[in-house]
Design a protein around this nucleic acid. Structure first.
Ligand SMILES: NC(=O)c1ccc[n+]([C@@H]2O[C@H](COP(=O)([O-])OP(=O)(O)OC[C@H]3O[C@@H](n4cnc5c(N)ncnc54)[C@H](O)[C@@H]3O)[C@@H](O)[C@H]2O)c1
Ligand SMILES: NC(=O)c1ccc[n+]([C@@H]2O[C@H](COP(=O)([O-])OP(=O)(O)OC[C@H]3O[C@@H](n4cnc5c(N)ncnc54)[C@H](O)[C@@H]3O)[C@@H](O)[C@H]2O)c1
Lengths: 224, 224
DNA sequence: CAGACTTTGTGAGTGCGTGCACAAGGTGGA
DNA sequence: TCCACCTTGTGCACGCACTCACAAAGTCTG
């Protein structure tokens, strides 16, 4: 049951990485219920996936289960946290103190894992100094200084779309390695920077696609 | 160049459906610049994908391009809109008038396409009547009535996680066919209902995974 | 009108992710 | 100690999606 070192092991598929947070959350919840051992079957149910997938996913982390018994919940939790880097502290900046930026700054779910909002920035002078979630909004022009001095690794873009690329460039130039983009715009970053996007409009349009399909199946004559 | 009817045609892959909104947005932007014809190469650049993928994606909608020329931007826009159901009006309810719910309600990007927030609901009596984005917050207990009378087809869940399943059940029971869930919880819905989730914590954890990997590559001795 | 040129539409090969099914391995009871 | 039972870990087959590469089909020029 030795811990494998992180890094030098067979590559973890992207799809698996995306599911690890689900398992992590599920384990946290069972942990609160005093459960000590969990089977792949149970974990699958909690995470809403297939049991074989759970086992295969976890096997990428190492052999942390016991045949005939299952996985030790706490130990597995620890391993997943270690793999995802949740045992570390990740300082985050939010750029754009509008509707969304403020909501994000106030979001409690952040601190739970190691993510900590250390600054909220805005380019609008009117917003400067406004208090958001216990932080005073700072000037976008101070980005580089703030990122360096507070060792920020993750940047969240919550500005209008037309400013997103500019903000992304500034974040990258300042040394941020990961960007989460909420603006509905394509932004490009160098390959060594991770970028993910959350796109509300796209999500809704995907939903309406399938909604339309169903409507057409029910009454094929309604729309053309 | 006849329009194919929607519905009875070869199935559109899910991955393609997820990209159609990108093309749509890209076309909207070129449209503003007075461009009339667009090549798959150009569209690919705008959407940040591979040109062959663009052509294959668009070919699922029908043969709307002209060899040697490209695609008529306006016509293509129209076809994608039709396919995604954007030519229709989609009434939306937001359940949960907290930080996130209010930010979403205030989001302008909604109306642009056919999505229209017609109600914001909350279970907390304190929130009742509070004005959010020009709408008075209504009681969660009125959900069924509101959904039926306003022909709501899409529900957005912006409540705490512990209420999410209950809200989802209520939405489904009231006849909503599509759900977008922002709560960090697994919710289950019947197969005939579409459900998508936006999970901030997961996104950050995926980012920190890769961030950690890179940090380890740079200085393998730092963490174990 | 012919031929060069451009760009679409798609066949085919490849790789990744999924899920089945089962051997391997561990537990507990007799 | 042996055996019945349980659950993991994984080999394997399948399917979806991505990309390349090219024939088909249209435009433009001389
Ligand atoms: N509000 C939502 O629920 C929601 C949902 C999904 C996506 N979005 C997207 O998120 C982004 C923000 O939305 P919002 O509703 O908060 O908009 P908003 O207009 O309320 O806020 C944008 C903020 O960004 C600031 N800003 C503009 N340019 C900047 C720059 N160069 N550097 C730093 N700050 C700058 C503005 O001063 C403003 O405070 C938009 O791109 C929007 O499309 C919003
Ligand atoms: N704030 C963010 O930026 C953010 C980001 C990502 C995800 N989320 C998630 O979105 C959800 C909402 O976040 P928030 O920050 O707005 O929380 P919040 O506490 O500010 O708002 C939640 C609202 O839901 C209402 N509510 C509770 N139970 C309800 C029920 N059964 N029916 C109707 N309404 C009910 C509450 O009265 C409250 O007004 C949470 O699950 C959170 O994890 C929030």
């Amino acid at each position: 049951m030795a811990e494998r070192p992180i890094g030098d092991r067979r590559r973890i598929p992207e799809a698996t990485v995306a599911r690890l947070p689900l398992y992590y959350r599920a384990l946290l919840e069972t942990g609160e219920m005093g459960i000590t051992t969990v089977s792949s079957e149970r974990l699958a149910e909690l995470a809403g996936v297939n049991a074989a997938k759970v086992r295969k996913d976890l096997s990428y982390l190492g052999s942390y289960g016991t045949r005939g018994v299952g996985y030790d919940a706490e130990y597995l939790l620890h391993q997943i946290a270690r793999e995802l880097g949740l045992s570390q502290d990740w300082p985050v900046v939010i750029v754009g103190a509008g509707n969304l930026g403020q909501a994000l700054a106030n979001y409690r779910g952040f601190g739970a894992r190691g993510f900590r909002v250390v600054a909220v920035l805005d380019a609008d002078p009117e917003k400067l100094g406004v208090e958001v979630a216990g932080l005073a909004v700072e000037a976008f022009t101070d980005l580089a200084r703030i990122i360096e001095s507070r060792k920020v690794t993750i940047g969240i873009i919550a500005t209008p779309g037309h400013a997103a690329q500019e903000v992304a460039d500034a974040l990258v130039a300042a040394g941020v390695g990961s960007i989460l983009n909420f603006a509905p715009t394509l932004i490009t970053v160098p390959p060594e920077v991770s970028m993910r996007k959350v796109d509300l409009a796209t999500e809704l349009q995907i939903l309406s696609f399938y909604q339309l399909r169903r409507a057409l199946l029910d009454q094929p004559r309604a729309a053309r």
